[in-house]
Design a protein around this nucleic acid. Structure first.
Length: 886
RNA sequence: GGGCGAUUAGCUCAGCUGGUUUAGAGCGUCUGCCUUACAAGCAGAGGGUCUGCGGUUCGAAUCCGUAAUCGCCCACCA
């Protein structure tokens, strides 16, 4: 490959006028990979490490991934170029619920029911599925340019990670931090499993508040009370009605019983202050089996609990009626039946929040069941402290509040899932119903024999818990388990790479994952898992809506790469993505990125097209241009360094963007550019290539492909070398004065160009420039070149027909043959005069204020004085210009 | 119900230890250019008084308070 490319590099005329990412990206990615340039092993250098937030193994790349992984890649690539031993570890997550759901659906389409399969058979289908679809997303990450060390690709269910999870479970159990118990849990009737609190998403929904009549038992007057509920189907499980004891409307009910409609069950009236008197009717039906609050009331008053639902959300035998019907169908039917009996008082519109499963979106059913839990309160303490004292730094820091709130109100974590796809809980039940917890079946048997006092117990006598662990129970170990830090806590890799450097993730998994990793880090390794957490924003569409499959508003990142190139997509995403702020994504952002690639490409074509000649003397313009640009370059290097340290990545990219486009292309290249088909002097040529080299290095973390491509055209290199390892210059000095002098020059040139535009003077026609007043002539040669000025002269009297503009304290004039529009000139000058008079008045007001002069720092006062004198000079120039006109 | 964040140009956003010229960028708009690196481009122009009100300060887009609007997170009100 290099032979061919080097040939094209010899002659830029062969480079296309447009950059074509397709031809370049695949080639370089392969080059990087085959030369193992992403690979890292422990050595003497300072480590820099990021672990990828493992995407769902069967998932595909979406915009959130694109953003998140671009940021990680930028950080890793930059670290490499700073001389660090940079490692980015990739991997995927087994995503228990969603993968199992996909496999179940696939089997169903083949007419196979999960219940007909053994656990082993099902798992073999699941592994087939994982191997077939797994890792697609990792291929997609390659398209994005992600410089992951693929040799280290891990999976939350592979051997090391599986065993790590089991070891941790046993460890926590033995520490008394894992327990098994009956609790009200969030049940997903579609996935048929319990969920943790974090996996429930509450959505506001338009629903109804049904007012139902419950007859008072044996009441001679035939009175009834009205109960308000959003879930009439649950009356099948009612075991009481509750009112507030202070509610005078209902004191007559004390000690009475009411009849549950349709089912005809007699239930007691209980009195508890939990009931709000002013909500609904003030009467609350109590269904201990299907509502967390009712459950607590049931416990308190010793009420029976009737579980009227099957696991799949249909009515169970215990419901008595509607057996086998779906809960939502029952809701409709029961209202018809109640209405027929005259038991419906009224139906109101009502907005309430309904819990949905994060994975399946099914409406969650609160359900009593036996599950495994992690006791969190003590585990959370060191993790809370670590973030509070910035040992783990959050960027932006506002997420500390969120974290603190969650950590200080942390609930026990329900970790068992009624699934097969995942790490099976290592608990083994004895014939008597008690259990032991152990890493292996052998160990479990030993423990069981010991516990039962029966040495003849065999493996067949003990039964392993069929449930699996929550996926997050494996991903919370990720920064440790990737380096085998759980099974071998003192190995070389974990010692070298842990704690990792940065974690990049979206804020919506701060509790699911980030908080728990921090907890796990302190608990299982005595150390934080990472130094910094960078929270990205959420990618939204132009209208601010979250991107989602159902809305169809999410572009496919691969399509975008196809259209704009990976660099274009990366650039577009990053320009709009400050930390922690959601980004309103618009394809025009990618267009900008693509255009920028093209700009770089064409700047390169220009430079490579020059013929250098060592016989030619370096012109003054080039000398001055080089002096100026190297200062601007150094200033930007420092600026970018500072911004990157603060994770202000989009600002850093903006700085680089402007440096390349505005300063380098629009000014520097134009200043040093030789006349058409003329050779350039060797010195300027070499300097320009040097600048280009530094610019490419600076750009590389953001735009890896085009920079690698051009870097290889720039200079000869050996096979296996890459810009990836070219080092960034650091701590270069610059002069602010040289830069500001050039800024003034830009104003002068812009002034000349404006006059040309307004007067319709072609750029080709050379002009004469007259200068009146105090002006530095050091950069005059550049003014000549950039403004196409043939002579610059000092002058005292303004010619009658000269158009003019003012920069600093000097007036610049272009004598014109045809007369000028006096009125317009005067108007313009008057406006400018007014502006500066206002400005001057402000400055003088400050300076006249004794307290300002006394209190403000010296430098600030000096600056005000400088502003004053500058404004005075400018005003004087304006005045003389006006006088000359009038 | 609690908490957090936002409100700056037509749009999307910078401006994060108060003073760097009475606010910057990109996109869009307007004007003139196919000037042999780039029309995916070049050269220019216009456009905001920083959501309202009050305060602190010599000085406020920046700090404090308050109101309004929007967004997010958390919470067991049927």
């Amino acid at each position: 490959m290099s032979e061919n490319d080097n040939k094209t590099a010899q002659n830029s005329a062969e480079l296309a006028t447009k950059y074509d990412p397709k031809a370049v990206e695949a080639k370089w990615y392969k080059y990087w990979e085959t030369h193992r340039l992403f690979h890292s092993e422990p050595d003497g250098r300072e480590p820099f490490c990021i672990v990828i937030p493992p995407p769902n193994v069967t998932g595909i790349l979406h915009m959130g991934h694109a953003l998140n992984n671009t940021i990680q890649d930028i950080l890793v690539r930059r670290a490499r170029m700073e001389g660090k031993n940079a490692l980015w570890v990739p991997g995927t997550d087994h995503a228990a619920i969603s993968t199992e759901a996909k496999v179940v659906a696939k089997l169903a389409s083949e007419g196979i029911k999960k219940t007909d399969l053994s656990r082993e058979e099902f798992l073999s289908h699941a592994w087939d599925w994982t191997h077939k679809y797994g890792g697609i997303i990792l291929q997609q990450l390659r398209k994005l340019g992600a410089s992951c060390d693929w040799e280290r690709t891990a999976f939350t269910m592979d051997d090391i990670r599986y065993r790590s999870v089991i070891r941790v479970f046993v460890d926590l159990y033995r520490k008394g931090l894992i327990y098994r118990g009956v609790r009200m849990v969030n049940w997903d009737p579609q996935a048929l499993t319990a969920l943790s609190d974090e996996e429930v998403i509450y959505k506001e929904e338009q629903s109804k508040l049904y007012h139902l009549r419950y007859k008072v038992e044996d009441d001679p007057e035939g009175r009834y009370i009205v109960v308000a509920t959003t879930r009439p189907e649950t009356i099948l499980g009612d075991t009481a009605v509750c009112v507030n004891p202070n509610d005078e409307r209902y004191t007559w009910l004390k000690g009475k019983r009411v009849i549950v409609p349709l089912v005809g069950r007699s239930v007691p009236i209980i009195m508890d202050e939990y009931v709000e008197m002013d909500f609904g009717t003030g009467c609350l039906k109590v269904t201990p089996a299907h509502d967390i609050n009712d459950y607590m009331l049931g416990e308190k008053y010793n009420l029976p609990s009737i579980d009227i639902f099957n696991d799949n959300g249909t009515i169970s035998e215990k419901g008595g009626i509607y057996i086998g019907m779906d809960r939502f169908d029952v809701r409709k039917q029961i209202m018809i039946d109640l209405d027929a009996k005259g038991l419906v008082e009224k139906i109101e519109d009502y907005v309430n929040k309904v819990g949905h499963s994060e994975r399946t979106d099914a409406v969650i059913e609160p359900k009593l069941s036996t599950q495994w839990f992690v006791r969190m309160a003590d585990l959370a303490k060191p993790a809370l402290e670590g973030v509070e004292n910035d040992e783990v730094k959050f960027v932006p820091s506002k997420f500390k509040n969120l974290y603190r709130h969650w950590m200080t109100n942390i609930k026990d974590w329900c970790i068992s899932r009624q699934l097969w796809w995942g790490q099976q809980i290592p608990a083994y039940y004895l014939p008597d119903g008690s259990f032991v917890v152990a890493e292996t079946p052998e160990e479990a048997l030993d423990l069981a024999r010991e516990k039962s006092g029966n040495p003849s117990l065999s493996a067949d006598d003990i039964r392993r818990d069929p449930d699996c662990l929550d996926t997050w129970f494996s991903s919370w170990l990720w920064p440790l388990s990737l380096f085998n830090g759980i099974l071998e806590p003192d190995n070389e890799e974990i010692r070298y790479y842990y704690p990792t450097t940065d974690l990049v993730t979206a804020p919506d998994i701060i509790f699911f994952w980030v908080a728990r990793m921090i907890i796990a880090g302190y608990e299982f390794h005595g150390q934080k898992p990472f130094n910094n957490v960078y929270f990205t924003g959420i990618v939204r569409d132009k209208l601010g809506r979250k991107m989602s499959k159902s809305l169809g508003n999410s572009p496919d990142p691969l399509d975008l790469i196809d259209q704009y190139g990976a660099d274009g997509l990366r650039m577009g995403l990053m320009r709009a993505a400050p930390a922690g702020h959601d980004i309103m994504f618009d394809e025009s952002l990618c267009e900008q990125g693509r255009n920028f690639c093209n700009k770089i490409w064409n700047a390169f074509r220009l430079v490579k097209g020059w013929k250098a000649d060592s016989e030619i003397e370096q012109p003054e313009t080039a000398k001055l241009g080089i002096e100026w640009f190297s200062n601007v370059l150094n200033r930007t290097l420092a600026e970018v360094d500072d911004l990157m340290k603060k994770f202000r990545i989009s600002e850093a990219l903006t700085a680089v963007y402007k440096l390349f486009w505005d300063e380098f292309s629009s000014w520097y290249l134009e200043v040093v550019k030789p006349a058409y088909s003329q050779p350039i002097d060797q010195k300027t040529y070499d300097e320009t290539l040097r600048f280009f080299d530094v610019l490419l290095r600076l750009l590389h973390p953001f735009m890896p492909f085009i920079t690698e491509e051009l870097w290889q055209h720039l200079a000869e290199r050996r096979d296996g070398e890459s810009i990836m390892y070219a080092q960034l210059p650091k701590d270069e000095e610059y002069s602010a004065e040289i830069i500001s002098d050039f800024e003034r020059l830009k104003e002068v040139v812009a002034g000349i160009r404006t006059i040309r535009l307004k007067r319709q003077i072609p750029n080709k026609q050379p002009l004469k420039l007259l200068v009146k007043g105090d002006a530095d002539s050091r950069l005059d040669t550049i003014i000549r070149k950039m403004g196409n000025i043939d002579t610059i002269e000092k002058c005292e009297e303004k010619p009658a027909t000269a158009a003019s503009f003012i920069v600093g304290g000097a007036e610049y004039m272009i004598p014109l043959e045809n007369s000028i529009d006096k009125e317009e000139e005067i108007k313009k000058l008057e406006a400018e005069k007014k502006r500066f008079e206002g400005f001057l008045a402000g400055v003088r007001k400050k300076l006249a204020n004794e307290r300002f002069v006394a209190n403000a720092p010296e430098a600030v006062v000096a600056l005000e004085h400088k502003k004053e004198s500058d404004a005075l000079a400018k005003l004087a120039a304006i005045e003389t210009a006006l006088a000359a006109l009038k």
